[in-house]
Computed example of a mutant assay.
Amino acid sequence: MPSPEDTPTTADPAIVKAVREALTTGELREIVVAAAIESFNSGDLTFTPKEAAAALGCGVRFLLDGCNKHGFPYIDMGKSKRFGPRELREIQNMLRVPAKPSRLAAARRRSASQKSETSKQPASRKRQKPTDERHLELALTG
């Protein structure tokens, strides 16, 4: 591995200084992660299942089961599965749960629909007692 002094100085001196400090202080991981995020956003990178699971915040087994059983998109590279930015975004959209209305809003909708159903029924549809003479006689003599 080349030492920080062997780094070419054709780059911006501030960048060279930041890289040298990162190499000496152990902050190289943060620089690599920042570069990976930039590359991810530009669409130039594919991830292994382990890296994709870390990016999505789920387990590797969940991700692979999703590919095998639930139709999660992936890039087939021989015997391995890879995930690009587009695939990760599609998986996120597949897993998105729509917001549920609050209980109060659901209760208001129920009561409004019940009121509108009762007001739509015509009065003639209500059950009426038969009015023939026989029933009247039974009611008077009964």
Rank of each mutant, 00 (worst) to 15 (best):
E90S: 14
N93D: 15
N93P: 09
I31Y: 10
A34C: 03
T7N: 03
A107L: 05
D44H: 07
L64H: 00
I91C: 01
S42F: 06
K81D: 08
L95W: 03
S116P: 00
L45W: 00
G71S: 02
G84E: 01
D44Q: 03
E90L: 11
V19S: 09
S111D: 13
V16H: 03
P130A: 08
L63G: 10
M1D: 05
L23E: 11
T25N: 00
I75V: 14
R82S: 00
R103C: 08
Q128K: 14
I91V: 14
P49K: 10
M94R: 13
T7M: 14
P49V: 04
S42E: 14
T7H: 01
T10C: 12
I31Q: 05
A123V: 15
K81M: 11
P130E: 10
S119Y: 06
R125M: 11
F47W: 07
T25E: 09
L136C: 05
M94L: 11
T141P: 00
R125W: 09
A55G: 11
L56D: 12
A105F: 04
L140W: 12
T118P: 00
S119N: 12
G59E: 13
S116Q: 15
G84Q: 02
K50F: 04
A35L: 07
S116H: 13
P73M: 02
G142R: 07
I75G: 03
E51M: 10
P73Y: 05
K50P: 00
R109H: 09
G59N: 00
V33G: 08
T46G: 05
N68S: 15
G43I: 04
L140T: 09
L88V: 01
R127K: 11
A18I: 02
E38T: 14
Q92V: 04
P122I: 01
P13I: 01
P101W: 00
K50H: 10
I15R: 08
T118K: 15
E90Y: 00
D65K: 04
L28F: 11
L104Y: 14
R89V: 08
A52N: 02
R20G: 11
I91H: 02
G59P: 03
R89W: 06
L138F: 05
L63I: 12
L64V: 15
L23C: 11
A139N: 05
A139M: 10
F47I: 08
F72Q: 00
M77W: 03
C67A: 14
S111P: 01
A105D: 10
L138I: 11
R110P: 01
T10S: 15
A18R: 07
E90M: 05
E137Y: 09
V33L: 11
A34K: 05
M1N: 06
R86G: 13
G78H: 04
G57S: 07
R109Q: 13
F83V: 09
A112K: 08
T131Q: 12
F72K: 02
S80C: 09
N68G: 13
S111G: 02
E51T: 12
E38M: 10
E133Q: 15
K81W: 00
D12M: 08
P73G: 05
A11W: 02
L23F: 13
I37N: 01
T141L: 13
S80K: 03
T48P: 04
F72M: 04
V16R: 00
S80H: 15
